Amino acid sequence: MTSHASPADEAGHQGPDLDRVPHVPVPAVLALGANLGDAAATLTEAVRQLAEAPGIELTGVSPVAVTQPVGGPPGQPDYLNLVLTLMTRLSPRALLAAGQEIERTHHRTREVRWGPRTLDIDVITYDDLTSDEPDLTLPHPRAHLRAFVLTPWSWMDPEATLSGALVADLAAQADDAGSVRRLPTGTEGPGS
């Protein structure tokens, strides 16, 4: 990713200002997943909604991955997952809020941690920003361990890195690496 001065550096204080709007568009990575209802249609619609959102320009959409649920209650259906790269003029919190608003339009509820969901949109990275804020930890605190994020990201961009490590290498080392497969060609999905 291109390096830009972090909002924390510009503000001259310890923690990042997650509400600071960048002067120029900055790169970000989002991960999307769904395992309730018509997950493929939901992902397609969510990608469209993000592409049309003010302040967001999509630069890449990964192929769709079919993955087993990680954590949460047993008996969940498989997930469909994909990763998006984008350039944004939104602040980190505004980007998170845009994703959460799209989740709401797809009737997302937050009842059970890692439970089944109609749509999940996570901010994985926002430029080179690091944050330990409880509402938005950057990079995403578990992304480096999750093949369901890393594998589709590496399919889209084999040279992508996360915290200095090659995403493809992290994907191969993840505990769920063996459970990720590409959605078959011809199956409806935004990145297939």
Rank of each mutant, 00 (worst) to 15 (best):
G75W: 04
D128M: 15
P116S: 13
L86H: 02
V83T: 00
L84T: 03
P92Y: 00
R110M: 12
T105D: 12
D127F: 02
T118L: 10
T109Q: 14
R93E: 11
A94E: 13
N81P: 11
T125Y: 04
Y126N: 00
T125N: 00
T85R: 04
D120F: 09
L80K: 06
E133N: 02
L95T: 03
E103S: 03
P134N: 01
G99M: 07
D78H: 06
N81T: 11
L119H: 01
I121C: 09
T125Q: 06
P116C: 12
A97Q: 15
R117A: 06
S131P: 00
V123K: 05
R117Q: 07
D132R: 15
G115Y: 00
L80A: 03
W114Y: 06
S131E: 06
P92E: 09
P116H: 05
T125S: 00
H107E: 11
R108F: 14
D78R: 14
D127M: 08
M87S: 14
L95Q: 10
G115H: 06
R89H: 11
R110Y: 02
R110C: 04
L136Q: 02
V112L: 13
T88N: 04
T109M: 14
P77H: 11
T130W: 13
T109D: 10
G75S: 12
A97N: 14
E103F: 09
R113W: 13
R89C: 05
E101Q: 15
L129F: 09
L82N: 00
L96V: 12
H107Q: 14
R117Y: 01
R104L: 03
P134V: 05
R108T: 07
L96C: 08
Y79H: 09
D127L: 08
L90P: 02
T85A: 13
P74L: 08
G115F: 05
D122I: 14
L82A: 00
H106V: 10
P77G: 07
P73N: 04
L129Y: 10
P92C: 12
D132C: 03
R89Y: 08
L90E: 00
S91Q: 06
V112T: 15
Q100R: 09
R108C: 04
G99S: 08
I121W: 03
G99T: 07
P134K: 00
T85C: 09
T118M: 09
D78K: 13
L80M: 02
R113P: 08
S131L: 13
G71P: 06
G115R: 08
D127V: 10
D120W: 13
M87H: 12
E101C: 07
P116V: 10
Q76H: 05
G75E: 05
E111T: 15
R110V: 03
I121T: 02
I121K: 04
E103Y: 12
R113Q: 14
R108V: 12
T118R: 07
T88A: 01
L95I: 12
H107P: 01
T105S: 15
R93G: 05
